[in-house]
Design a protein around this nucleic acid. Sequence first.
DNA 1: CCGTTTGTTGCGAACGATTCTCATGAGTAA
DNA 2: TTACTCATGAGAATCGTTCGCAACAAACGG
Lengths: 140, 140
Amino acid sequence: MSTTAQPKRNTWQREAVRAALAEARGFVSAQQLHQRLRDGGSTIGLATVYRGLAGLAESGEADSLQSPDGENLFRSCSTQGHHHHLICRSCGETRELEARVVEEWAQRVGAEHGFTDMEHVVDLFGICANCRASRGAAGA
Amino acid sequence: MSTTAQPKRNTWQREAVRAALAEARGFVSAQQLHQRLRDGGSTIGLATVYRGLAGLAESGEADSLQSPDGENLFRSCSTQGHHHHLICRSCGETRELEARVVEEWAQRVGAEHGFTDMEHVVDLFGICANCRASRGAAGA
DNA sequence: CCGTTTGTTGCGAACGATTCTCATGAGTAA
DNA sequence: TTACTCATGAGAATCGTTCGCAACAAACGG
Ligand SMILES: [Mn+2]
Ligand SMILES: [Mn+2]
Ligand SMILES: [Zn+2]
Ligand SMILES: [Zn+2]
């Protein structure tokens, strides 16, 4: 590395994004968050929300994933370090997961096939107990 | 269901997409496949390739996934039933994977959290031996 | 073989999420 | 406060994908 990681300035915008994300119950898109901020009276710009979320994701303060229709979703992430999520398809309720087994499996499989620089996408989706209860016999 | 699934017509375009996808080694994007077809002398349109791939994916003849940068990738899928993939980020080379461990983990975790109707997304990405070799000391 | 019917194609326009450009604004340190 | 920079915001630009629609061509009956 040659770049000397410049210090980030403190702006109310950065903090607003962090706060708004923390208030969100589950995963939200940049656009959703921007809308909520605007609805709350903020004058923050969309690009800034994108930049803020990218920053939070990069620093590990937020977790991100791609929704099935290609949007990037973010969530304020309490758990330190790498982990995965179990998400309710209906209400967005999210549980953070540790997956030692999966991590090891991913590494091992990669190695066995001669692959390096491994990354993996592991997300679980389902219907939470709450949603199941309130939907009952509605079923497909 | 009330829609009576209209019969699909046989066109050389549809077959061309199927064939091109079969020839592709790993996952390819619609644009890549379109380019290869054009390079091969075909006059097929881009939209038609998109439509063809969507059809193959829907009928289960092809597998699809989102690349980390948001592109939809497709692959002619031989393996029957549920499975996962290890994909080279550089050349698209793909290995089909069985992941008993992961399947069990996913089921168990879902159950432990009271979730039902579990689904999961599990994809591994890396750089294959070939690509690593041919890139060598090129570095970032 | 011919005409009718109607799904299919291909082109460019339209879309939508994200990124980029760049003039202006505001942290920071002196 | 001043000067130096990075951050911001509005809109343009990207870019993958989908739409709209007129021309086309399978499928089918005669
Ligand atoms: Mn993991
Ligand atoms: Mn699986
Ligand atoms: Zn739920
Ligand atoms: Zn490769």
